[in-house]
Write a protein that binds this DNA or RNA. Structure first.
Lengths: 254, 254
DNA sequence: CGTAGTGTTGAATTGAATCAAGTGTCGTGG
DNA sequence: CCACGACACTTGATTCAATTCAACACTACG
């Protein structure tokens, strides 16, 4: 597997707030720059402090390292603090299928809640760090804090909604619509964590994208080229610039 | 299809048989024949009694009636007591896309938890009855009963896993694999509620199935015919008989 | 510098969609 | 009870979007 690399986002045109370093394991939820888009939303200060106590801030993962693997025992859910991840399953034929990409502030690992085993594997796409939340403790604390229970129901509900949107995307969109939707989704998620919504790095390969969207890597490449020719985006290797957001949205529209 | 909405409180004082009939609104969770595959799993007797108190058993829905519609305010989740439902969204072009089918013992409506608005519409596919569970009360009770909280986390986690499985199905299976997987899923769900796993009725149309699996209704029809010619199934209108379960499973295998 | 992984592009192929024509089924009202 | 109309379904012919197969270019890195 590949070695660690300095994450590209750090040198992006759109610098982060001057807040504690994203990889710093000693950041607390209260001081975390993601606190208003992560688990703590809608919790008050004392509740956040209690949540903070059960969270384990592990060492960062290097690119290619696994957070957990398919069939591992489920112990925790994870919040992405920095970097990005992909989740995937290995099919009977050995082919992998990507089930999701995760960015800062998003929650990973809910696939294991029901069965107590992880149904997917999850791997860092770049140098990344996470907050680990032992699920038994989260359940216990949720029982004491109605707001936290409510918040976690909402997080899971949100995951269900997103999965249904992917369902309709995969069952009726063309290749071009899928890629447009994918780029717009990344864009709004980058915006959510204060990064540029129209210039960003794809940390996943064309093949990852294809496995996620139900396309081949060749088709992903071709559609990127076509969108570039139409001047809706600029693609330079892994770097994407969205040049015409309205027209990109219009691809989904009619 | 413009049916009347179901009145939410509807305490129909309807004279019914004393024996717990699937449509009988007076059945309690404790006496319900679905209690070991529905929400109450893993709850003890006194917990079930408390759950019972917040559940509203509405009048049955006729075929084509809506349980709720896209953009309706979210108030409750629902457990299917008898019959079956489909959920669907209307796309920008007016086309509908089916996001799920629901059978007895399954929970409907979790798409509204995060946003407090329903993201899909849900319609009865046949004469059906449901238990309505007002969500605010479910949250309150979950806060008192750790087992119920845990159970509901598990139900939502299960929904997430199923959605991920659909994701991989839609992104990599052929038409034949999708239909085989669909029939096997129905089969095991019928088995779960004590019905024959190899002879059952499809209450949805070919078009519904196609919209769910990302295929046209013509392709659904053709694949059914092809599977019949191979003697894996018999299709007579809406009636399906699975004649060779192992071979049907093998279609997914490699 | 060479190698492995990643990405692009072209040509041929194909699985499913689309277009089209017809049959079957069901519920309704006469 | 039957006739009618609407909807659901089947099957065939053709088209097309995406895959597959193939060759090559770029980049990163030991």
């Amino acid at each position: 597997m590949n070695e660690a690399r300095v994450p590209n986002l750090a040198s992006s045109a759109n610098p982060m707030r001057a807040r504690p370093c994203p990889h710093n394991p000693s950041v607390s939820c209260s001081s975390c720059r993601l606190s208003d888009l992560c688990l703590p939303i809608s919790l008050n200060k004392s509740e956040i402090v209690q949540l903070d106590e059960i969270i384990e801030r592990n060492r960062p993962l290097r690119k290619g390292e696994h957070l957990y693997r398919q069939n591992d025992e489920f112990r925790s859910v994870f919040a992405v603090r920095s970097g990005s991840f992909k989740s995937y399953v290995l099919g009977a034929d050995g082919q992998s299928r990507v089930t999701g990409f995760y960015m800062p502030g998003e929650i990973i690992g809910m696939d294991g809640i029901a069965t107590r085993k992880h149904g997917v594997s999850t791997m860092a796409l770049e140098h990344s760090s996470i907050c680990e939340i032992p699920f038994s403790q989260l359940e216990k604390l949720s029982h004491q804090l109605p707001n936290l229970q409510s918040r976690f129901f909402a997080i899971m509900g949100n995951e269900i909604v997103k999965d249904q949107q992917i369902h309709t995307l995969l069952s009726s969109y063309t290749a071009e619509q899928r890629l447009a939707s994918f780029l717009l989704s990344l864009s709004s998620r980058y915006a959510r964590c204060q990064l540029s919504p129209d210039r960003f790095i794809l940390h996943m390969t064309r093949s990852d994208i294809g496995e996620y969207l139900g396309l081949t890597l060749e088709t992903v490449s071709r559609v990127f080229s076509a969108l570039q020719k139409k001047e809706l985006i600029t693609v330079k290797n892994r770097e994407i610039e969205i040049r015409d957001m309205p027209k990109l949205r219009a691809i989904l529209g009619e």
